[in-house]
C-alpha cells in the first residue's frame, strides 16, 4: 500500500511537470508578450532591452528550467499587463471562483439528485419526461447564451438580481473574501451558479437515473423486496444509498472541471474570478498568468484524482490487489 501511494505521488509529479511543459510551450506560439508591454511608438532598442530583461532571448530549455524552479517556490513571475505578482492576482481571485464553483456544485447536486431519483422511479410519468427534456436544455444551448438570457430576464426585465460582479464581500482572515455573508453577495451568486451548474445538474440527474435503474435491478434489491420491505425503504434505504457513492465520486471529479469551465460564466457575469482573469490574459497574451492558471488547475485535478484513487484503493480490496500485482 505504501509503495502504491509513493508510486502514485511520483506519477502525479510527472503529470505536473508535463503540464508545466505544455503550458509553458504552448504560449510560446500564441503571441509575443513584448508587444503587450510596449506601445506602438516605443523605440526598437527599448523593445530589445525588454525582451532581454524578460529572458525571452534565452534557449527554450533554459527558460523552462527557470520557470519550473520558480513555480516550485510559488513564484509565477509578474503579470505583463498588471505588473503585479501573478500569485497575488490569482490568490485575490481564487475565493470568488471557489465560492462560485462550490455553489454551482451544490446547486447541481441539490436539484440534480431528486430529479434523477424521480425520473428513475417514475420512468413513465409525464413529469419525469418533462424533467428529462428540460434538463437537456441545459446542455442544448451554449453557456454564454444561457447566461445572457438569464441576465436579460432577471436583471434587465424583472430587475430582481444583479447582472455582474460579486456584490458586497466580507473579508475573512488575511486574504479570503466571501459573498456568502451579505444579501447582495448571495443575490449575486444566484445567476452565475445556475448558469455554471446547469450542465453538471443535467449530468448528475442522468447519472443518478441510470445508476438507480441499474441498482433497482440488482439482486439484493430484489431480495429486499422479497423480504417484504416497504418500497420507500427499498428505494431510499438501499437503492439511493448505493447510487450515491459513484455520484459523489463523479461530482468530486467534476469540481475541477467546474472551476475550469467557470471561464465562460465568469466572463459573461464579470465575476472577478480566476477564469475571467485567465481569459483576459489569453486575449492580452499575458503568459505568466496563463501558465500559472494552468498549473493551478492541473494541481487541483491531480490532487482530486489522487485522493479518489487512494480512497478507492482503501475501499476496494480487489482493485488494490490488481494494482499491487504489477
Amino acid at each position: 500500500m505504501f509503495a502504491f501511494i509513493l508510486r502514485r505521488l511520483f506519477q502525479s509529479l510527472i503529470v505536473m511537470l508535463s503540464v508545466a511543459l505544455i503550458a509553458f510551450a504552448m504560449f510560446r506560439f500564441v503571441g509575443d508578450p513584448v508587444n503587450q508591454i510596449v506601445s506602438i511608438d516605443t523605440p526598437q532598442a527599448q523593445v530589445a532591452e525588454i525582451r532581454r530583461s524578460l529572458g525571452l532571448d534565452d534557449p527554450f530549455l533554459v527558460q523552462f528550467a527557470r520557470y519550473i524552479w520558480n513555480a516550485a517556490r510559488l513564484e509565477f513571475g509578474v503579470s505583463y499587463q498588471f505588473r503585479l505578482p501573478v500569485i497575488s492576482l490569482l490568490g485575490e481571485r481564487a475565493p470568488a471562483t471557489l465560492e462560485l464553483a462550490l455553489m454551482s456544485a451544490l446547486f447541481s447536486l441539490v436539484v440534480g439528485i431528486p430529479m434523477g431519483v424521480y425520473t428513475a422511479l417514475k420512468r413513465e410519468s409525464w413529469l419525469a419526461k418533462v424533467f428529462q427534456a428540460v434538463s437537456l436544455i441545459g446542455i442544448s444551448l451554449p453557456t454564454f447564451l444561457i447566461g445572457i438570457l438569464l441576465i436579460y430576464l432577471f436583471s434587465v426585465t424583472l430587475g430582481v438580481l444583479p447582472s455582474f460582479g460579486r456584490g458586497e464581500v466580507v473579508r475573512l482572515g488575511s486574504w479570503w473574501t466571501t459573498g456568502l455573508l451579505t444579501v447582495s453577495g448571495l443575490k449575486a451568486l444566484v445567476l452565475p451558479s445556475i448558469t455554471l451548474g446547469l450542465f453538471q445538474m443535467t449530468l448528475i440527474m442522468r447519472l443518478v437515473r441510470a445508476e438507480m435503474l441499474e441498482v433497482l435491478r440488482a439482486d439484493y434489491i430484489k431480495f429486499a423486496r422479497a423480504r417484504g420491505l416497504k418500497t420507500r425503504a427499498v428505494h431510499f434505504g438501499h437503492a439511493l444509498k448505493n447510487t450515491l457513492v459513484p455520484v459523489i465520486t463523479i461530482a468530486g471529479l467534476q469540481l475541477g472541471s467546474i472551476i475550469a469551465f467557470a471561464i465562460i460564466t465568469e466572463t459573461v457575469f464579470q465575476w472577478p474570478g480566476m477564469g475571467q482573469l485567465f481569459l483576459r490574459s489569453v486575449q492580452n497574451v499575458d503568459i505568466p498568468i496563463m501558465a500559472a492558471y494552468l498549473m493551478l488547475i492541473s494541481f487541483l485535478f491531480v490532487t482530486i484524482n489522487l485522493a479518489v484513487d487512494l480512497l478507492y484503493a482503501a475501499v476496494d480490496p480487489r482493485l488494490r490487489a490488481t494494482v499491487g500485482a504489477h
Binding site: I148, I151, Y152, S163, F269, Q276
Partner: peptide, 9 residues
C-alpha cells in the same frame, strides 16, 4: 468586458 453585461448593468 462583455458588451451585453455592461449594457444590462
Amino acid at each position: 468586458a462583455s458588451d451585453a453585461t455592461r449594457v444590462a448593468a
